[in-house]
Design a protein around this nucleic acid. Sequence first.
DNA 1: TTGTAAGCGTTATCAC
DNA 2: GTGATAACGCTTACAA
Lengths: 338, 338
Amino acid sequence: MPATLRDVAELAQVSVRTVSNVVSGYEHVSERMRQKVLRAIEELDYRANPVARTLRTGRTGMLALVVPEIAVPYFSELARDVIDAAAAFGYRVMIDQTGNDHERERQLLRGDDRTMLFDGILFSPLVTKAELLEMRGATTMPMVLLGEHEFDGRYDHVAIDNVQAARDAVAHLIAIGRTRIAAIGTQPDEEYATPLQRTAGYEAALAEADLESPPGFTVPAARYSRTDGYEAAAALMSRSPRPDAIFCFSDLLAMGAMRAVFDAGLRVPDDVAVIGVDDIEEGHFSRPSLSTVSLDTPFIAREAVRRLTARIEDPEVAAEEVIAEHRLVVRESTAGGE
Amino acid sequence: MPATLRDVAELAQVSVRTVSNVVSGYEHVSERMRQKVLRAIEELDYRANPVARTLRTGRTGMLALVVPEIAVPYFSELARDVIDAAAAFGYRVMIDQTGNDHERERQLLRGDDRTMLFDGILFSPLVTKAELLEMRGATTMPMVLLGEHEFDGRYDHVAIDNVQAARDAVAHLIAIGRTRIAAIGTQPDEEYATPLQRTAGYEAALAEADLESPPGFTVPAARYSRTDGYEAAAALMSRSPRPDAIFCFSDLLAMGAMRAVFDAGLRVPDDVAVIGVDDIEEGHFSRPSLSTVSLDTPFIAREAVRRLTARIEDPEVAAEEVIAEHRLVVRESTAGGE
DNA sequence: TTGTAAGCGTTATCAC
DNA sequence: GTGATAACGCTTACAA
């Protein structure tokens, strides 16, 4: 049985008030009292019960990070940065995966989960804008959205300029002389914001150069996995005309796509240039190394945590949208020979 | 202000006891009462306060997973499996990274952290055996160790046979005719269990084949990152005689090592065969795909959560050691031409 | 400066 | 089957 505040008070012959003061670092405690209390704490190996404290103060000191899948490098790298940023603000992070499961997302948002032991949510959602709107007022919990959902003034929001990012990637492919540019990562059935915006950027860049996307050159990918990228690119390689470049909506798709190009007996970038989005570490060392649009994940994490903690302090602060920078990173997969 | 049990009781004109019964699914509640209560709950949009419940029951429903770095693929894939396994047992997972920081590990183990809102710890530690022993009795919190620390009967423990895993990897390199086999991943200054055991397996396999490891053929790597692997392999490539195979203590090291081999103008596996340990997904799609020793991570996760929840239920159950299977997976990096 | 006591919102122990 | 009511361990008015 762990020692309680009362036990300490008894042993030290003081009131619980005094013990509490010492524990929470209250200023006005006489040195003699403090010493007595500290000795008792030491002797009983007392440690404050965080649950009781939480019940009283209403703060758990914990944030939830909700992502589709933690094993996806982009999300695990984001999680690393979020955990670090949260630590700097005195918070810890619980991670939940929705596993691309809409219902799970809704549950979390509705807040009817039985174990919501956290003060706020960092949410990287799949849900469409319509669904987000539909949840209006559903949850009272402070929340910051990560990703590219359109800002509607209700939620804090750390995003990137997704259309422009896609546009930059495709413009680069055009600049190196490619004309038959395919895209992998559209969503066939759902109206997710990210793929829609990246598709828009892709089309805008093509239009700007008076190019077009032949039928079958935009390929859906359900889960943005390496396997999805592989299968999509394999299909593209058997088309005629064959694409001479592929814009993948994520680096992970690109890793699979590059492998499919090689397995089709072709070379990257000579026969087919490949570019992704995210700038995951895997792409630095792959062969060829992967050109990409780099997102400033540490900034995104820091900004998101900053906004969220501010809202936890004061739920009335106005929602803000922050746009994180992105920049084109040219590596071997769109450059000269390997 | 969220509604409380008392509010519901008042509105439904029943006692809090009855409301609590309904909420927690107690059997013996008359249908009339139940309906009244449910209506009131609906009307007030009542949701139980998990903190209060926790204070009362002593259970948070949360486990902590402590890893060196969540962005390392092996750990993010492990985290995915742990989160899934925990969900199956009704728990959620808080993730903490120690960032290779010993002090942080010790803090967690000592349990003097102020926000320990969890029922047990899954701990994938760096600490050496001596340090673990030194912490005897330091924490009363249920804990399961992940990884290859020697079992001393005090902690539950899900491990792999590390020596044998290394041995299998190196034996495979020997079987395909390699004789100058280097190793990357020793720890120069620390007595961590994992690198020591893998080194032992490496040496055992060599000895068995009457081979030896020339001076400079075992290269340390501080953080098991791709960069570490790259640098270590780059150094190896400039030695003479040059190794014709490299056993990397992790797949991530191997990814960096392969890249270094190519950058030295050599081929994998023709000039230098490369094998890792972990079987991360990245290795399925890399070029060449990576031979490795596959660890059964889903099993490890499930087993660890099972042991931990059992210990949470009954702190007195005897500690057990479970050894997870491993198996050699031969891919392109140790097979015929690319 | 320190003590007393009233909660925080549940669950659980009594009675009835 | 249901109603009072006492904890759970802490923080914090309010008093002294």
